[in-house]
Simulated scan of single mutants.
Amino acid sequence: MNSVIGDVLPLALGVAISVVPIIAAILMLLSPKAKVTSVGFLLGWIVGIVVAVTAFTLLSSVVPTDSSSGSSPVVGTIQLVLGLLLLVVAVRQWKSRPKAGETPKLPKWMKAIDNVTFFSAFGLAFLLSAVNPKNLLLAVSAGVSIGTAGLDAGSTVIVIVIFVVIAASTVAVPVIAYLIAPTKLRAPLDKMREWLAHENALIMALLMLVIGVNLIGKGIGSF
């Protein structure tokens, strides 16, 4: 189980470092309906991650392996494809990084964040966590690692819980902290939003590069 946890930790970190959901959560925390929308967003974020990684874990658990050698061409092929796709994401993130003095472009729907309700915040977060292409690739990668490891049900649940806790932490921490001390966190949250908008593309490019290369290596080793 420990080796599987080691495999999914960087994948969970990749989900956690996602600029759009983090900034969306921060904007909700700075909006008039902060407590309602931020909680809905957090719940949707967690549920989306759980659904995605659990679904791909269950699908991967039926992938055939060679019992004599432990190799699995199917798993290897999946990991190679996912690794290559993550390298593509890394290149796109690198190219999208803002130049010196340039203001990062954020989704237009963020301008309407003050009008978001609990349920729309929940649905938005669910889509960002479970359907967003980058997060979906990472969820598939985590599901493949967990589902093909041959773990018992209890160990599988533990690994998924660890993955979800880490992946959801960057949204959960500011939301929970704001609910505890809203007044003190307004200025720090605004500074965090600005920093993430400027630096996230570079961080994500490097992270996707490392994870992609790692998956390609694992894929080659599975043949």
Results as ranks from 00 to 15, higher is better:
Leu179Asp: 11
Val161Ile: 14
Val213Asp: 08
Ser69Met: 03
Ser129Trp: 00
Arg193Phe: 12
Ala12Lys: 01
Val157Leu: 14
Pro182Trp: 02
Leu85Pro: 00
Ile180Gly: 06
Leu87Ala: 05
Pro188His: 07
Ile26Val: 15
Ala16Phe: 03
Val63Tyr: 11
Ala139Asn: 13
Val157Ser: 01
Ala177Trp: 04
Pro104Glu: 07
Thr54Lys: 00
Gly217Arg: 04
Ile180Phe: 10
Met1Gln: 07
Ala177Val: 02
Val63Gln: 08
Glu194Ile: 13
Lys35Ala: 14
Ser61Asn: 12
Ala121Pro: 05
Ser67Val: 15
Leu179Cys: 09
Ala25Lys: 06
Leu30Ala: 15
Phe126Asn: 03
Val175Phe: 03
Gly154Thr: 06
Leu13Phe: 09
Met28Lys: 15
Ile146Thr: 03
Val165Cys: 09
Ser60Arg: 08
Leu151Arg: 09
Met28Thr: 09
Ile146Lys: 02
Ser61Tyr: 07
Val210Trp: 00
Ala177Gln: 13
Asp114Pro: 08
Phe122Tyr: 14
Phe122Ser: 05
Val161His: 00
Ile216Lys: 09
Ile17Glu: 02
Val19Lys: 07
Asn135Ser: 10
Met208Lys: 03
Pro32Ile: 08
Gly147Thr: 04
Leu42Met: 15
Met110Arg: 09
Asn132Ala: 10
Lys35Phe: 12
Leu138Tyr: 05
Val213Tyr: 08
Ser129Gly: 12
Leu127Tyr: 06
Phe126Glu: 07
Thr57Ser: 15
Lys33Arg: 14
Lys99Leu: 09
Ile166Lys: 09
Ser69Trp: 04
Val53Phe: 00
Ala167Glu: 03
Met208Thr: 11
Tyr178His: 15
Ser155Val: 00
Thr117Val: 14
Leu84Thr: 05
Ala112Leu: 12
Thr37Gln: 08
Pro107Thr: 13
Leu80Tyr: 07
Phe122Met: 03
Ile146Cys: 01
Leu43Trp: 02
Phe223Asp: 11
Ala205Tyr: 12
Val62Pro: 02
Leu179Arg: 12
Asn115Met: 02
Val51Tyr: 08
Lys108Asn: 08
Ala201Cys: 13
Ala153Gly: 05
Gly83Ser: 04
Lys108Ala: 11
Ile46His: 03
Pro188Gly: 08
Gly40His: 04
Gly76Ile: 00
Ala177Gly: 09
Ser129Met: 04
Gly154Arg: 08
Gly6Pro: 06
Val131Tyr: 08
Ile176Cys: 04
Ala55Phe: 04
Gly123Trp: 06
Leu215Gly: 06
Ser145Thr: 06
Thr183Arg: 15
Gly147Val: 06
Leu85Glu: 01
Ile180Gln: 05
Thr103Cys: 02
Leu137Tyr: 02
Leu189Ala: 10
Leu59Cys: 07
Ala205Glu: 06
Leu80Gly: 12
Val15Ile: 13
Ser71Ala: 11
Ile160Leu: 11
Val74Trp: 06
Ile203Glu: 03
Lys134Arg: 02
Ser3Trp: 01
Ala187Leu: 12
Ile166Pro: 11
Glu199Leu: 04
Ala187His: 09
Ser68Leu: 08
Ala34Tyr: 14
Leu128Asp: 03
Thr57Leu: 02
Phe56Tyr: 15
Gly123Val: 04
Met1Lys: 05
Asn214Cys: 00
Leu58Glu: 04
Ala149Cys: 02
Ser145Lys: 07
Thr117His: 12
Val53Ala: 02
Leu106Thr: 14
Pro32Ser: 12
Val175Ser: 11
Ile26Tyr: 11
Ile211Arg: 14
Ser38Tyr: 10
Val140Gly: 08
Thr103Ile: 06
Ile166Phe: 15
Ser169Thr: 03
Arg97Phe: 04
